[in-house]
Design a protein around this nucleic acid. Structure first.
Lengths: 327, 327
DNA sequence: ATTTACTATGTACGCGCGTTCATTATCCTA
DNA sequence: TAGGATAATGAACGCGCGTACATAGTAAAT
């Protein structure tokens, strides 16, 4: 009746609705879900990293808002699930107990444990979507941004300014994001007519500000020769910026620095940080759509797997090689 | 049987459990909830402020983690609900449809509309808890941090350094947080033997970085006389810091600056920002406990309404009045 | 051996809705 | 006006579990 089953005269409908109002009737969601055999909730799994936010809160907030916005629009609830890092991964469990009709997984790494857990999900063809991580050799349902291109844009920006080489502070290789950025880094050299990149200029942090700060020990000695740095996220870039300042190197003056993410931090630092903007909110929306589509009896719509990113120039890289007084 | 009803022999239990495993039996959460007549979810209502994050993402992330952690521990799910600012407030609706067994409300203001919505909830004695906001003249279930004390600590810190007056950039008065901070500001003068505070030194932003930046127009002219500033949150403090730098005033050198929140930003600015740390994660945990207690048949435990905060000294205020060369 | 207490197991019902099928009312066409 | 089509209404069932109650089994007490 309420679900538009069968033809129905307008007046009839009006009468029922009026009666419902006077009787203060409210359909019981639990009973509805029970009768329909689905929870009407999508689980969003976020890593529960107490205090240590490897991936920034900005990142999650934007994604969550996007997901929540789209789910709400389509009549689904958003069940937030914190995955403790030590607990064994078992996403299937969520479905067996019918707690969710689908799930969106954030903050994954490409590790054997995760791959195994995803394979189970996939084999049972349960509705899921992994955001911001891809898996080499597997065809999981994923949604990512084009980090190869983002990295390419960032490094090209530096090369076009005249820098011959670029120091690169990347993240751990378990994140496909890191691998993609390295690929973009390499491509940038080819596309800008450079002889080649130099892998000795590639360092690894863990996406935390601290790791950026610590990388100063390895990177500072190189700054006498190479005046351009690309960091795989804003937080490492800022750690680096802080550490290098202590050594007397100032971003935007003594060297050019580019970060990645366009987090809030990028606007608040001095100098402000050139960076690459990732459409996190939109990713959230699309991830929600993608999962819902995989629920049986839902109509399909083509959703891309890779979203575009855009480079944003700020102060930290507003310097050209020829402006640098020789040291 | 599974719910420990009646006495049960160990072996019997073992047998059933074994059978359940071989048959791959999983209790159906939906049916359980239905039979029990409760959803087993707590709704967390967050304001949906598209792009414009008046209240920082840091704030929500920490709170959410705390809430989720405690709810998970106690066997409840966390249903994330985005409240669009224009939609009429109706928290009761959530309960009528049985979508949640209780709710935690974040990011509220003290406006007539909100008060009305809360009064309905309260009259029906539904389980809810408002976090980080209190309401003058009402006795709602709230959980807040002691911002009077935080403000008192921050301003006292400045007064003890020898500054006679302190410029105060506060937030909107609809937030009880703002009113509390003003109270603490006033108390600080009394407790530190000053003649009095001066309300002409109190300005109002809206907790955004931009509003801090814009406040420079009013505040910069005063800096020739008064060298100490307290901002009601870190973001405004940073906006202020950026704006004042453009005028040639450097925090920690030309004037002392203290923020509030201890967000990530406070550590990444130059100079780093003295601030007041709020135990957001713990607030989340306690809010969760508080709501669950209000669900019938749940045992009570005394939970405070006001949590302590702590002042953190960083570089931006590491300067004393007598160190300032007269201008 | 019989009672009494306790433990163990089985049975039946209902939660509130969706859904399907049977029934009745209304309309249009011949 | 009769006949078929379509619209509206009503009745019945089941989703999977919790719960209360009735029954059967077992051990301790008399």
């Amino acid at each position: 009746m309420f679900n538009n089953i069968g033809p129905l005269r307008k007046e009839t409908k009006q009468k029922v609705l009026a009666a419902a109002k006077t009787l203060n009737y409210h359909p019981n969601t639990i009973a509805q879900n029970f009768a329909r055999g689905k929870s009407n909730n999508i689980g969003v799994i976020v890593p529960y990293l107490q205090k240590v936010n490897l991936i920034s809160t900005f990142y999650f907030s934007e994604l969550l808002s996007g997901i929540g916005s789209k789910l709400g629009e389509l009549g689904y609830g958003l069940l937030l699930l914190f995955q403790s890092p030590d607990a064994p991964k078992d996403y299937v469990q969520l479905f067996l107990s019918q707690r969710v009709d689908g799930c969106i997984i954030l903050g994954l790494k490409d590790t054997p444990g995760e791959v195994e857990a995803l394979e189970k999900l996939h084999q049972l063809s349960l509705p899921y979507c992994v955001v911001n991580q891809t898996f080499s050799g597997h065809f999981f349902h994923t949604l990512d941004a084009n980090h190869v291109d983002g990295s390419l844009q960032a490094v090209s920006h530096l090369l076009k300014k005249g820098f011959e080489q670029v120091i690169f502070l990347n993240g751990p290789a378990e994140f496909s994001n890191s691998r993609d950025r390295l690929k973009g880094y390499k491509e940038a050299f080819a596309k800008n007519g450079r002889v080649s990149y130099n892998l000795e200029l590639v360092f690894q942090g863990n996406y935390s500000r601290k790791s950026g700060y610590q990388a100063v020990a390895s990177i500072a000695p190189l700054l006498s020769d190479i005046k351009a740095i690309f960091a795989a996220n804003d937080r490492m870039a800022i750690g680096l910026m802080q550490g290098l300042r202590e050594q007397g190197y100032h971003a935007g003056e003594d060297y050019a620095l580019v970060g990645y993410d366009d987090s809030e931090l990028a606007k608040t630092t001095t100098p402000s940080l050139s960076t690459v903007k990732v459409p996190l909110f939109e990713m959230g929306e699309l991830a929600a759509e993608k999962v819902l589509q995989k629920i049986p009896q839902t109509k399909a719509k083509e959703i891309p797997e890779l979203l575009p990113v855009t480079f944003i120039e700020r102060e930290s890289s507003q310097i050209k090689l020829d402006q640098l007084s020789g040291i």
